[in-house]
Design a protein around this nucleic acid. Structure first.
Lengths: 114, 114
DNA sequence: TCTTCATTTGAGCATCTGTTCATATGTTAA
DNA sequence: TTAACATATGAACAGATGCTCAAATGAAGA
């Protein structure tokens, strides 16, 4: 049996399942969101912001990371619109910008605790 | 202001948020689950199994990957108890073993589509 | 037994990722 | 303007990650 050059056992089942797969862009986008939350130090930053908004150096203090490291991570999270920021003088406050990501984290947290 | 050697702006807010953070092991475990789903080719495998159980070479055909590559990914997913397998003669069928992961994926998919 | 086939495994390699450091930017107050 | 401070940025490096290839298992049938 052969589907696009690769041999398989049960052609019917293969075709069935292929039909159910989301488009490639959707899979990529899902993976990007999961990836943003897949690094412990980055996840910790998001968890901290779940509680309330914080400035960069407070996040660094909370998470035990350098200001620079936190800034880099926040940039990535901002690119994915997971967090947003507002400036107040010299200080820039970051907060969560994606309710859906909050749900994902809470669901995962609930699971891990059981 | 100083918390464990790192200067911060608002000590009170920092202490508040630190209290709300889950224990380190929980954060690590959450990150591990997100990481398992953060690679597009691995996520695609899980999406395929969401529909029905499949043998390794059918998964490879569905996902356009090599048998060996799929086997490596499945091992990782098995370690995290996201998938399980059963043997039927020479053929080994894989299926989802974690309802919670199904929820995470469906929630993410729903989000991506809106 | 020997052969075939599905799957697994390990090593090698190129690429990606997170962190660190030094430096730059931008804002406030003196 | 200058100094001090919060944050951002870019380069560089070590370690992790995913893929590929070749070889090893393990099961079924000849």
């Amino acid at each position: 049996m052969d589907v696009c050059g690769i041999k398989c056992i049960n052609e019917t089942k293969v075709r069935e399942t292929v039909k159910t797969l989301p488009p490639k862009e959707d899979i990529t986008r899902m993976a990007d969101i999961f990836k943003a939350l897949s690094d412990p130090s980055r996840l910790k930053i998001v968890l901290a912001l779940l509680n309330q908004e914080h400035c960069v150096c407070d996040i660094a203090a909370i998470c035990g990371q350098t200001d620079s490291g936190v800034s880099h991570q926040l940039r990535l999270l901002r690119t994915l619109k997971i967090v947003k920021n507002r400036r107040l003088g010299k200080i820039i406050y970051y907060s969560i910008d994606d309710d859906h990501v909050v749900s994902l984290i809470n669901m995962n947290l609930h699971h891990v605790r059981h």
